[in-house]
Design a protein around this nucleic acid. Structure first.
Lengths: 184, 184, 184, 184
DNA sequence: AATGAATGAGAATTCATTCAT
DNA sequence: TATGAATGAATTCTCATTCAT
């Protein structure tokens, strides 16, 4: 605890530990004492930085998930490729651990749920936008476009979680191709 | 305890109460004492029937979700309608509460996860089968069919959960139509 | 439970089960439910025969340990042989399990302790008597004879227990020889 | 909690209380709540220091029984006196309470049993050594010496317990004299 | 005699949180 | 900032015992 480098980052180390533990066993199942232990700080210090346990989760979500807003460059005439590209640059800047936390705790914690909602809306928006650009002449069905965007967003968002929970892997590129074909 | 209706099935009332409470606040957040209270039985009786708390959850999943296996009747030439019909008779005989429980607890409880995995596999299988029947001449792309089935299953399964978590409603019929168009 | 042979002996089977379990894990650590289970009888029946749990232990001690009172035949001039013979026909008619129970529960249950006390007194009495007969001319030290009898009784009684607890085996014959030499 | 005497050592007070209660009613029969109560600390603090109840017992045995290893000074030519002296400085630094705990719980708790085994071995070793020194010319029977040492150790160790359980007091000095005579 | 559901008083243990230093 | 002892409410689970049938 004397190393200034170590000392300086107690708060960071607490968040690191929490991220790992929340992702592993879930928020409820993680005692603050174990966070402190893994972070290598005394128990009291956790409450110094985060007066209530829930604040650790909130801070984690606030500081470690970022819903970016840069749009993908659409390739006109190639909706499948455009969606695939979007899939590869998901507007969620977050570690895999943070992603698990986001999905897992959304059910029970409003602030997490809000963040997930915003993320979903953003993916839908960008999918729709990308598809519009990629399909220039698409005077086509707006409702179908909407369904396509929502479906793609759902697949992107839940892909990992789905695989984890059901054991079935789903390939975003194949879905991109499917959707492109539907709108083509 | 004299009311015959009450007396009939303490065990059933315990499961009823648990179903409601687990769906509401989650498994972890539900003390067995509250299950007993809502069921109108003494605390000890819960443990008489379910030696560990987790057994309540396991029994619930075992006894109250049924993955049926009757296939949907496909309408040749109408894949969209066929999928819509399938959506309406989900091979999951379970209350909305049980469905929430299934998704929420799958993350942490293997037996629940297993059941969810089986359910997902069954929906995929049936979607694929329905599409094959509905598209007689589909010498078409097997991979695309697969992607379609998996996508439709994901949407069906996560529909409710997605809406709850992200606030965004997704219409299975629109997705059915989308997929039909992609394969048509 | 239909076999008359089985039915007839429910009480006996309960005691059998209790004997085994009490010896194994101790009285306190043995739930009545497990006694019933091992005995193959419903839980309620245990309380039919033994209104309180302690009654099982008391009955066991009452019915399954017998402090016999037949004296050993002393061999004049051979105190060591006489004691050895006495060791081999301990005035305790009891299974090894019952013996463990006797020693283990004496500490906490008066009725068991009483039985153990009586047993000890009887062994001392018989040892003294045997030694007197075997050492005809022993107008010797009465106090030393008393110490010898008490020592031999202690060794006999605690032999097994001592071995179990300390891992050190003590040979009654060697002690008999030792004592004979001391008095000879 | 302001009294400095009280404040000094909550942990110590917990062990004090446990020592008293375990000796009195036994480990199983002593709820942690009563330990806390007697120690004058909140229940939770017991578990702060001793995560599981058994840790209280283990700590007690670890910290409050000491098997010393200083040998007794033998008096050549006076084996009885030497043994008596040994009896008076038992190689067990422990309160009477701790001694009761040691015997009572050895049956069910390995760590306690181990300590008792070591203690017994040490007493035998010392008795043998003392006798060898006290009987210089004893080229005598090694087996008899062994039996003597084991017997004396058994008597020393079980003396109290024996008296408590059987109501019969046994005098170590008389046994010492007896043994001396046997080897003399 | 037989049965097993019902009861409820504890038991150990967990843990967020406070607080004095 | 840092520390870890202190607190006590809450929780899961155990079990002897009762009782209606």
């Amino acid at each position: 605890m004397d190393d200034p480098l170590e000392t300086a980052k107690a708060r960071t180390r607490i968040l690191d530990a929490a991220e790992e533990l929340f992702a592993g066993g879930g928020y409820d199942a993680t005692p603050t004492a174990r966070i402190a232990e893994l972070a290598g700080v005394p128990k009291g210090l956790v409450f110094h930085y985060f007066p209530r346990k829930i604040d650790v989760l909130v801070s984690l979500v606030d500081e470690r998930t970022l819903v970016t807003e840069e749009d993908v460059e659409a390739v006109p005439g190639d909706p499948a490729g455009t969606l695939s590209k979007l899939a590869r640059m998901l507007p969620l800047r977050a570690s895999p651990d943070m992603r698990r936390i986001l999905f897992r705790e959304a059910d029970t914690h409003r602030s997490v749920r809000d963040r997930l909602g915003r993320l979903n809306a953003e993916i839908i928006r960008r999918s729709r936008f990308a598809l519009e650009l990629a399909l220039p002449g698409s005077r086509g069905d707006a409702a179908r476009l909407e369904a396509a965007a929502a479906t793609f967003a759902a697949v992107l968002l839940y892909q990992e979680s789905l695989c984890l929970l059901t054991g079935h892997h789903i390939d975003p590129d194949a879905v991109a191709e499917l959707i492109a074909h539907a709108l083509g």
